[in-house]
Design a protein around this nucleic acid. Sequence first.
DNA 1: ACAAGTATCTCGCTGAGCGAGAGACTACTG
DNA 2: CAGTAGTCTCTCGCTCAGCGAGATACTTGT
Lengths: 152, 152
Amino acid sequence: MSEVEEPMRLVHLLRGLTVELDLFGAEFAARNGLHPTDLRALIHLLDAARAGEVVTPGRLGEALGLNSAGTTGLVDRLERLGLIRRERDPGDRRKVRLVVEERAMELGQGFFGGLIADLVAAMGRFDPADLATARRFLEAMTAVVAAARAER
Amino acid sequence: MSEVEEPMRLVHLLRGLTVELDLFGAEFAARNGLHPTDLRALIHLLDAARAGEVVTPGRLGEALGLNSAGTTGLVDRLERLGLIRRERDPGDRRKVRLVVEERAMELGQGFFGGLIADLVAAMGRFDPADLATARRFLEAMTAVVAAARAER
DNA sequence: ACAAGTATCTCGCTGAGCGAGAGACTACTG
DNA sequence: CAGTAGTCTCTCGCTCAGCGAGATACTTGT
């Protein structure tokens, strides 16, 4: 194995993996009458809910790279689908809290649940030292991409 | 480290990495007056060109999940930007060959070039055995996602 | 009380992508 | 070989996600 070939092979693997994950997400979204943006929003909202953070339309729009008008539309859509609910923040009445509904959790479970279980099962076939190596590797790659993004 | 925690941490790392890569791509696309779809198309076309494969609008649309009308629009856009050129297939005159222009290669280089160099440099700080492990890991995860996609 | 700042929403618009189907060409069948 | 079915691409009309500009409602500092 040449010293140049192996890294390139890994680069292509990384790209291929992101493509597969994107397609998986897009197909899941389409099957549930969502747009890719809706799914990304849902993921963001569920992550925040699990971390106990309050999400407002402003924060959500910023995370997804939408302007305020687009964000209002997105929130309208999610609300119409019964995935979230708007609630005025009692402390600062300019703000709106986006509350995740039960249905959204179930949808998220349907999306992630099976895939995560499969991924974890596949990881079970690696020994702990290898998983630690994989983790170091992924952390290094993520740091590189994040740095490239920040600098440009 | 618990036996359950480490895999979940890896799952989140994988997701985080794909998010970073997506955002990187989206920002690059926006800066060059492209839509995310255009960039995905460009990547597909460059991959095919490197592999010496002929791409037609039909194949491209299928790869990106677009219908024929959307594909025509996409190809129009890429042609207008001077990234590709349409050529009738002399063998089967129903088909159109999408020929990648020099400008597209340069754009692709601008997108991938720097990032790939950084990724490869970061990989250089791992020893070959670790890279082999990372590769096995990525191949396993890609296979899981591909299988999940195929089955649903 | 007033000005400046912040969070969200409304309005009108652009354009990506869809469904339906037309047009051009090829391949199969009797 | 004619006729018909199949394939590839494109056109037309439409829907709707997301944008820019600005209105509205509320908060904060003076």
